[in-house]
Amino acid sequence: MKKIISVILAVLMIATISLTLTSCKKSDWDNIQEKGEFVCGITLYEPMNYCTVEGDMSTLTGFDTELAKMVAEKLGVNVKFQKIDWGNKYIELKTGNIDCIWNGFTSNTKDSDGIERADKVDFTHAYLDNAQCVVVKKSALANYTSAASLSGKTGTAETGSAGESYAKSVTTVAVVGKTAQMETFMELKSGSADFAVVDVLLAKQLVGKGDYSDLAIVEAINIDKEVYSIGCRKNSDFDEKINDALVELLNEGKLETLAEKYNVHITDTLMALKTAK
């Protein structure tokens, strides 16, 4: 009796495994069409994705939010926005909880593990220019004149961000990794870190305001220009679909209008794809 049961169980197991394996073979785009929606992994920050009424996700807006909605319309599917922990973005993508990382995702950089991001995900065209900047306490601003002055100081940045990679490259001391860019400012204020490296778009929005009025951006330190892309699963066919939609939106002039609205700059490489009518 026991033998029979174990044989039945073994057959069932093999059946389920083979079933799941075959179901995996469908392409990303097929799955998205079947679901009728794709899921964007985001973190809330101005001006990319943010809520106009705090805590109410139905008021979500921002450059990336609006762009994703436009692309979804072009593709004929719905878009869903899912908050993620930025440090877990690759796990979220790989496990299928999200279909793309669309949140001011710097594509031309290495992660702090030294691996190019482009090796981990399939990127779309770079669509937006960005840069990282260094933020310090206003009272200590005079001490920071160049990237060399950061050496020997304690840095802080969001775990898994482009800023973290930069911080690690300039200082010989520890870099404190935080789960959100905003939390790095608390490290600064409490004195547990000397400088923070964050997106310039975010810094301009917050530094010098409210509780962050004692912080300042170090204008003297320029970090290489970065570009944002949308990250899809490795070997996905979804990135091509987004690319087609982006170029279409560009040709219709909608992308430029949107960039003007949020005061951001579309990359030259994307602009070059515009086909003159």
């Binding site: 809330l44 943010y50 899912q82 789960t179 400012f185």
Partner: peptide
């Protein structure tokens, strides 16, 4: 639960930092 992004009270407090306020934490 916030490590898998369940929006409980601490998560909300951290998000409020986007409004340049720390005290909610």
């Amino acid at each position: 639960a916030r490590v898998i992004v369940v929006v409980e009270i601490l998560f909300v407090a951290e998000e409020l930092m986007a409004h340049a306020i720390i005290w909610p934490l």
